[in-house]
Simulated assay, not measured.
Amino acid sequence: MDTLLSRVVWSALTSRQHRFSRGGNLALKFDPDVSPFAASKDNSPEALAALADLMSPKDPPVYLLQADEIALPSSLKVEMTALGVLMTEQTSQPKAIPKAPIVPLQQRDIAEMVSLADLTKPGPFTKRTPELGQFYGVRLDGRLAAMAGTRLNLDGFTEISGICTHPDFRGRGLASDLSIWVASKIRKRGDTPFLHAYADNDGAIALYRKLGFEIWSEVNVAVVRRLEGSAD
């Protein structure tokens, strides 16, 4: 468990989500149209050089996410760093009747999903992110009021992600209902649900604890890009 979750992006790209991967034996990234995440196998000079080789200066930045310390070659520039937490479900919640109907989101809902993610910033989300897993939503007054789904998928673990509620519909418990709903789907197929939050987001962490999640580890987040004219 420790090894898989310490470099969770690497674990996903070398197991169940390998079909989305670009790279080789030492470093991998998701197809950038699907997700901006990338990872190296370890912090060896060879792996870090391979990570840099996945990018060109013209590419958009990539996101690194891991419990292990993030080390970078000189050819990569850091645009942002943050501390997060990885939380795993320790106590499952009963699947109560949701306060509003929860429906599977489909291809026709993509534009609304991207719009909601752009507004609420639950994390990187593109029009192809839903290819990583099933998303569910709540519609109120003919609008997508809230959603949540699955993103990183590795042996034995599936991540709940994209949890967000439109500001017009907050305070109704929709995020809790959706999180419980998605977690129940994950458990049904035999996986342990996990999720991420920024370490300073006390409200989100408190909510997830109420839903039965506990912090497994702090995680490091970095947004990096390749420098012009660099070579390792």
Rank of each mutant, 00 (worst) to 15 (best):
G84C: 10
S161H: 13
V85M: 05
P94F: 04
R139M: 07
T165D: 01
V223A: 10
D191R: 00
M113A: 01
F37W: 03
F37Y: 11
I102R: 01
D59H: 11
G229H: 08
S176K: 05
A146M: 14
S40R: 02
S35H: 02
R143D: 11
P122S: 03
A47W: 04
E214V: 13
R187V: 14
S184G: 14
V9Q: 01
V78M: 15
R143W: 07
M87R: 02
A100M: 13
F135Q: 02
V62Y: 03
P193K: 02
K77P: 02
Y136T: 03
N201W: 03
L28Y: 14
R139K: 11
R151P: 01
G23K: 14
E159T: 04
V223R: 08
K99C: 15
W181H: 15
S11Y: 09
D59F: 08
E46M: 05
I186C: 06
V219R: 00
P124V: 04
Y208T: 04
Y63K: 07
V34S: 09
E79F: 09
M80L: 14
I205F: 03
P193V: 08
G24T: 14
I205E: 02
S21P: 06
V182N: 04
D109S: 05
S44D: 07
A175R: 02
L152V: 03
Y198Q: 06
R128D: 11
L54I: 07
I186T: 03
L132Y: 10
L105D: 02
S179N: 09
L51Y: 00
L83K: 12
L105M: 09
A96V: 12
S217Y: 04
L86F: 15
A12F: 13
T120M: 15
L132D: 00
Y136D: 00
D155N: 06
A96S: 10
L195I: 06
P57Q: 15
L174T: 00
K127H: 12
L65E: 00
V114G: 06
L48R: 00
R189H: 12
L83M: 10
S44V: 04
L152Q: 04
L28R: 10
F37I: 09
T3I: 10
D168M: 09
G190K: 05
Q93T: 13
D59W: 06
R16Q: 10
F135I: 08
K210Y: 08
T88Q: 08
L83F: 10
M87I: 03
A38M: 05
G203D: 07
D2E: 10
K188E: 08
I205H: 00
R16P: 07
G212E: 07
S161D: 00
M147I: 06
T88R: 06
K188N: 07
R151F: 06
A204D: 04
L76A: 01
G23V: 06
F213I: 02
V224L: 06
A39Y: 11
L195C: 11
R226E: 00
K210A: 15
I186Y: 03
D168C: 05
